[in-house]
Design a binder for these strands. Structure first.
Length: 420
RNA sequence: CGGGGAGUAGCUCAGUUGGCUAGAGCGCUCGGUUUGGGACCGAGAGGUCGGAAGUUCAAGUCUUCUCUCCCCGACCA
């Protein structure tokens, strides 16, 4: 992508109405722009990050048997009345039509998926079943805050699992836990699996927490990694030795990026979702739910990985793998043949990278100084920066966003590095 | 929803006790000089001062109402 053509440019000053680190950086760098409080537009760069996160989540959900589907956002009031949540779900958006009919705007999808699954599941032979969707959800937060961390409209993955019995559910729950661990690792995030309360549905749940000052949750955890509990339910105190002797337990603020929990038969009983077992007996289906906040993850990554200059994207979620800069006199290429060759060379490197299948954001702007391009590259935070200039001669300068050192490499050497 | 703060150019902001054609920096356009860490000179465009009502000879400035954004709290499968 040529930066000169990219929709959504960097800005020098942060907008005054963005205070949260993630919103400030993402706005400055041209990834997002606020529409109203807690509701953001995702510009091309931001959408690429969102899609990369979604795709990793998608791959891992597919790997544990998940089938992707798309559910409605405009939902059925009757179903919500049936579960009692039409009145008890306090952040439910209620949209009214011209005919004065009310529709819940989906904050979650149990009320849609359970009646839907009921139309297809009759027998133990239809189970287990794992379906998921990655969709925009709406929650009427009284106070949206912290940029992408707590919005009124946000992108979320929800997987629902359906089982014949508790035992089968528990088996899958452990599989899901493993998938979550792998998935967060792929995203480049240090995520702590945390025991949490069960809310209204069950005795327990698990949250996936990222330690960060901006977080709204508080966890008591073992730095060695074998224990963590939400402070709301923790029975142990900060400072106590953990069971494996990894030193004293710590207390920290954290961002909840995922949450998995048993639904048992709560929704299947409400909607009459049952199956016939081998003896022809009707039983309620046992369910589990597995959520991940996709847009919140994007905010969390920006919140956690940055320095004074900008964002530092982990490789797998960066909008582009590489950032190419040409330092040249483009104002009057016809006047200075030597420097105009640099422009041609950078164009050529760009074409070759593209041909080799390397994702590259090419800063081809002709009226921006070298310093301006470097500053923007740091702000945008793509993992690898490559420079072509008079100084690099027939080579290309390679620099990682996380490091200060630069190296001069040939295009072949660069392609070799990007392959591994 | 309670408490606090803020709305003036695309962005960040200044604007005195109400007083003349409402300003600056950045950005943008044009011309010129520049090019390895956010260059410089010159010219120019750009404003219903969030909205409505009111007080006044006169309102960005005072009063009332209202909308919006931010922060703290409460809330948060």
């Amino acid at each position: 992508m040529r930066y000169s053509k990219l929709f959504g440019k960097t800005i020098k000053n942060a907008l005054s109405d963005e205070v949260a680190v993630n919103a400030k950086l993402l706005t400055k760098a041209g990834f997002i722009r606020k529409e109203i409080a807690g509701v953001y537009n995702f510009l091309p760069l931001g959408l690429r990050v969102l899609n990369k996160i979604s795709n990793i989540v998608r791959e891992e959900m597919n790997a544990i048997g998940g089938q992707e589907l798309e559910l409605t956002t405009l939902q059925n009031k009757q179903s919500w009345e049936k579960t009692g949540r039409w009145s008890s779900f306090d952040v439910l958006f209620k949209a009214k039509s011209q005919l004065e009919i009310e529709y819940p705007l989906g904050p979650t999808h149990e009320e849609v998926i359970v009646p839907l699954v009921k139309q297809f599941v009759n027998s133990y032979k239809d189970l287990p079943l794992y379906v998921y969707q990655i969709q925009t959800k709406f929650r009427d937060e009284k106070r949206a805050k912290s940029g992408l961390l707590r919005g009124r409209e946000f992108l979320m993955k929800d997987l629902y699992s359906f089982h014949t019995d508790e035992k089968d559910f528990e088996k899958y729950y452990e599989i899901a836990k493993k998938a979550y661990k792998k998935l967060f690792k792929r995203l480049g995030l240090d995520v702590i699996e945390t025991q949490a309360g069960g809310g209204t549905f069950s005795k327990f749940s698990h949250e996936y927490q990222v330690v960060a000052e901006a977080g709204e949750d508080e966890i008591i955890y073992c730095p060695g990694g074998d224990f963590s509990a939400n402070a709301e339910i923790a029975t142990v105190k900060e400072g106590k030795q953990c069971d494996l002797g990894h030193g004293p337990l710590k207390k920290a603020k954290a961002i909840e990026v995922g949450n998995i929990f048993p639904l048992k038969t709560k929704f299947s009983e409400t909607f009459g979702l049952t199956y016939k077992d081998k003896d022809g007996k009707e039983n309620p289906v046992v369910m589990g739910c597995y959520g991940i906040g996709i847009s919140r993850l994007m905010g969390t990554i920006a919140e956690v990985y940055n320095d004074g200059k900008g964002i530092i994207w982990p490789e797998n979620v960066a909008p582009y793998r590489t950032h190419l800069i040409g330092i040249m006199n483009n104002a009057r290429p016809e006047r200075d043949r030597r420097e105009s060759r640099i422009k041609e060379r950078t164009d050529e490197v760009y074409e070759k990278l593209q041909k080799a299948g390397v994702e590259v954001l090419y800063d081809d702007r002709e009226d921006v100084s070298a310093g301006g391009k470097f500053a923007d590259a740091d702000l945008i935070g793509i993992p690898v920066r490559m420079v072509v200039s008079e100084k690099t001669q027939d080579k290309i300068e390679w620099k990682k966003r996380t490091e200060e050192k630069t190296e001069l490499l040939s295009l072949d050497e660069i392609l070799g590095r990007l392959k591994s």
